[in-house]
Design a protein around this nucleic acid. Sequence first.
RNA 1: GCGCCUGUAGCUCAGUCGGAUAGAGCAACUGCCUUCUAAGCAGUGGGUCAGGAGUUCGAAUCUCUUCAGGCGCGCCA
Length: 572
Amino acid sequence: MQELIIMDFKEHIINSLTEATGIETAEVAKLVETPPEMKLGDLAFPCFVLAKTLRKAPAAIAKDLESKFTGDEYIGRVEAVGGYLNFFYNREKFAGSVLEGIREAGESWGSSTEGEGKTVIVEFSSPNIAKPFHIGHLFSTAVGNSLEKIWRHLGYNTVKINHLGDWGTQFGKLISAYKRWGDPAVIEKDPINELLKIYVRFHEEEEKDPSLDDEAREYFKMLEENEPETTKLWQYFRDISLKEFERVYNMLNISFDSYAGESFYSDKMQEVVDILDEKGLLVESEGARVVDLSDKGMPPCIIIKSDGATIYATRDIAAALYRKRTYDFYKNIYVVGTPQALHFKQIFAVIEKAGFDWAKDCEHVGFGLVKFPDKKLSTRHGDVVFLEDVLNEAIAKTREVIEENSPEMENKDEVAKKIGIGAILYTFLKNNREKDIVFSWDSMLDFEGESAPYCQYGYARGRSILRRAGEPELKEIDFKKLTGDEEYALIRQLDSFGAAVKSAAERNEPFHINRYVTNLVKLFNKFYNSQPILRSDVDEETRNARLALVKASVSVIKTALALLGIETVEKM
RNA sequence: GCGCCUGUAGCUCAGUCGGAUAGAGCAACUGCCUUCUAAGCAGUGGGUCAGGAGUUCGAAUCUCUUCAGGCGCGCCA
């Protein structure tokens, strides 16, 4: 077996193209693309841009360039097709390079050092205290959790912040409701539901009696002034809520580095007011103090309400200042619904106006709504779908499938949990995050086709083959055995993992990983379905080469799913 | 009224920093379990890329416009 060299085939071709065309390397790198079909090669150089300067037809240029490439150890063949110059890698070399690369890298395959020494903050989940953790919260939770893993995979230091909604006039309302109708004994038994009940009742009564609103305002004022009894009540609400949330986070296997929510900034807002005042940005308007943003074509940003209390914009600005000081972030990401897009644009604009150039490093990563076929989700009216119920339902459904397919499985509960929860996460991470999701049990519990169970199944099948083979080391591989189309397509996909991670981070879109891993599993399934591996008529060289490919595939599937927060199972 | 977003196969969506015959899953139909797990694989049918105009060698992609839908627009977050 010849010595293996891990190398970057794309870079190699780009360098050759630079020499042949005289175009700068960076420019060539931007131009080259992957052909739409494998038949057309592995890398293509479009010659259209050269047409103007060379005053020749693109096809002629391609033909011309073709003759300059005779191929080498890594480039199998070069072919001009229309205006494209298509490169075909030496399949054997490429297979060796990719599989060896994966073997060495392990779970760090597709990672990078680009983030070294830089910190990315991801604020996500951020449920409201004393309110149910409902299905709508899963969007932020799933997307944020995945983004954090994606950035970390690229070498960035990350900070996961749960910006709890534990402050604001709503707590005045809740305290008012509690004092009127709260029964400590009942609340103790089922905290969130009971608090939700009295909260809903408050809104009902408020419609009849608007003076309730003033009362609530008064309570929040007391809270802001640290009045002992009110504060104690608030602390109680916060404690029991966190305990409930923790249960869901544990199910999802999600943790946070900080729970510094809105209340955390309650004593850090005066500074914001002072800074804005000092810069002369605060103006009086209808009794409130606002920052005018008309020069940016936006409505003004309210900093102090007419009743003297602060507002969420003030808190968000205080939070941004605090985070810059504490973490010196390279990027400060907010995973918050798209309806709040304007709000974030406003506070970033205020931060910029206040003279902080890092305003440009703050980014709002929006996501769509979870809608219901008939009604709209509304906490105020009490019609909510609890996330915990959805997760449990998915686990139960998975349990049924297992019972039917493999009744003799030992760790059914563990497997059901990983698959059921994976299925839900997958549903939320499979499309562009700004797209709304129409909640439907049917699609959420559909385990066929593009889904987490589909990916997990492919992984389990691969692991099963490796187990049967006795978990071989596979050091000396004849990569010539992996040059068929099915094997090669799979190897190309394995190679492109790093690109998928990068593009997912660039656009803060976990679904890029989702699509990547689904396609990977598709190719993997196709491969092992058509190429026998352990059958007695397969010679040893071929068997080992195929096993090496299975091993690499399984490894990358696991790593990719992990970036989505989806776990794998050995058997299913 | 102003602003942002969306409109691609029956359904859910990719493709949108211009490029090769517009892709996938579901649903429908047809094959494959005496060979490594059928939560799988192979295959068939299905599209005026909302409509119109423009820019370009080339447009689902860029510009303008019309229509349809969603979200947001100072004291909630």
